[in-house]
Amino acid sequence: MTSTIGLYVPGSSVLHRLPAGTKLLAMVAVGVLSVFLDRPWQVAAALAAVLAGYPVAGLPVRVALGQLRPLVWILGFTAVFHVVVNGWERAGVVVGVLAALVLLASLVTLTTRTTDLVDAVVTGCRPLRVLRVDPERIGLLIALGIRCVPVVAGLAEEVRDAQLARGLGASPRAFAVPLIVRSLRHADALGEALTARGLDD
């Protein structure tokens, strides 16, 4: 079915052992600082640094490239757009920064258990309690979101197979409508399961 993009790969590297909160904060900090990168050599250095993190985490560079695969179209489109509008250098910088950030985010999720990530987010969201936001709920939403990605991808695959089996072409509507119906049905069942498993207890 779907590849395991960004899903935790067990290990005992330095990156695995760093606290989830630290990794998240570092990621946010790098994201903010990345807007200051505007020279190709700076971007190349950033990319190299992030890529170097993969072997440090015990992950082959092949895994890193796999993280970019789903974004090939977006990266390609962005590249073409910037080449036309702003020229080669700018295109390289923008695409390079984008790729580096995606690789960094993946590196974090590949080396951190979802529960640890979620716990870190929950801790980080504590101040939101004054706004009557329940940090636990935010954490749960994130975990559910991650869990739903492969499920919905599986549903999409089933719908597409059914479409092909009935000889329907690639009609977007014939695809979207049953997918939405199935996703809603799944959401309904998931809600039931959450109640049964003690969500509100």
Binding site: R113, T114, A143, L144, A189, L190, E192, A196, G198, D201
Partner: peptide
Amino acid sequence: VRRRVGFCFTDPDAQIVMPTVAE
């Protein structure tokens, strides 16, 4: 009641709510 009564559904995909097994 729900603390005493466990429920197992037909479709495990709808019942598994966390991304990994131990979680």
